[in-house]
């Protein structure tokens, strides 16, 4: 569904990331994880050309995103930025209706109204449909942003840290909702996150970035205690959690946090990932 080949991005002559390869299939969620400054958000923005990559290919459903017009791109890829406020008051309904913008001429049609009304109902926002989004809680606002992305009817959903600022219950609900949508509509999703446990629990694939390089990529089994130590400089325990893994951080280890990871120290990981392609 989404294929990234040898993707690189440089800003002002400084390379942010380079040589990124991964694929995400239909009905799958890929989580981009890695420490601050690894290039996760930049990579995510390159997927729908919010930023122009300096080289490499991003193909969505077989088509290179560079060949798509703005409108075609908007009908294919939806993007939910990190929680942000509108500067002026705006109702929940109007904010979600913006997701229909790539399909609208002037007045929304019945189908647009129905889609927006239904998603409001499903996300249990009915009582707040005419309320100002700026006066809602972070979790409710995040629901609105996700609803807007979903009524855009994309093939790819991109989320930049969708669970930051959310309480525990909302983190799980939002992630469950994203997973359900991805499965039901058979689309795919790329999510950046700092929360390794949510990533382990909800994603089908992981891509681990450090210092602009893809250190490991594959299914959730690629996550190992050694990898966490290398990438985050954190000693952690990985415990079984149903059929998933649960990561319990133990302590930060000096000398690891800024050390460059040698990709070759994990040859098995890179061998493994090619099986999934």
């Amino acid at each position: 569904m989404i294929r990234v080949e040898n993707l690189s991005f440089a800003y002002g002559g400084v390379e942010v990331f380079h040589g990124i390869d991964f694929t995400v299939g239909e009905g799958q969620i890929l989580s981009l994880v890695g420490p601050n400054g690894a290039g996760k958000t930049t990579l995510l923005k390159c997927l729908n050309r919010l930023l122009e990559p300096s080289s490499g290919i991003v193909a969505v459903a077989g088509k290179g995103v560079k060949t798509l017009s703005r409108l075609e791109l908007a009908r294919t890829v939806a993007y939910v930025p990190q929680a942000s406020l509108a500067i002026f008051p705006m109702t929940v309904f109007d904010a979600i209706m913006l997701g229909r913008k790539p399909y609208l001429n002037w007045s929304p049609r019945k189908r647009d109204f129905d889609m927006v009304s239904n998603i409001i109902d499903q996300l249990e926002l009915t009582d707040m449909a005419m309320r100002d989004i700026n006066q809602m809680s972070g979790g409710e606002r995040q629901k609105v942003a996700i609803a807007r992305a979903i009524v855009q009817e994309p093939k790819i959903l991109l989320f930049d840290e969708p669970t930051t600022y959310l309480d525990l219950k909302y983190q799980l609900r939002i992630m469950q909702f994203i997973r359900d949508i991805v499965r039901e509509q058979n689309i795919c999703s790329v999510i950046t996150t700092h929360d390794l446990n949510l990533a382990l629990q909800f994603s089908d694939r992981l891509a681990v970035l450090k210092d602009g390089a893809l250190v490991a990529e594959g299914d959730t089994a690629i996550m190992t205690e050694d990898l966490i130590l290398d990438v985050y400089g954190v000693e952690a325990r990985l415990l079984p959690n149903d059929d998933k893994l649960y990561m319990a951080p133990v302590r930060a280890v000096d000398g690891h946090s800024h050390e460059h990871v040698h990709i070759h120290s994990h040859p098995h990981i890179h061998e493994g990932e090619h099986d999934h392609h």
């Binding site: 923005k45 908007a74 942000s84 997701g99």
Partner: peptide, 9 residues
């Protein structure tokens, strides 16, 4: 809703 949300629509 901000430049990025606008651009993505």
């Amino acid at each position: 809703l901000g430049d990025e949300s606008a651009q993505s629509t």
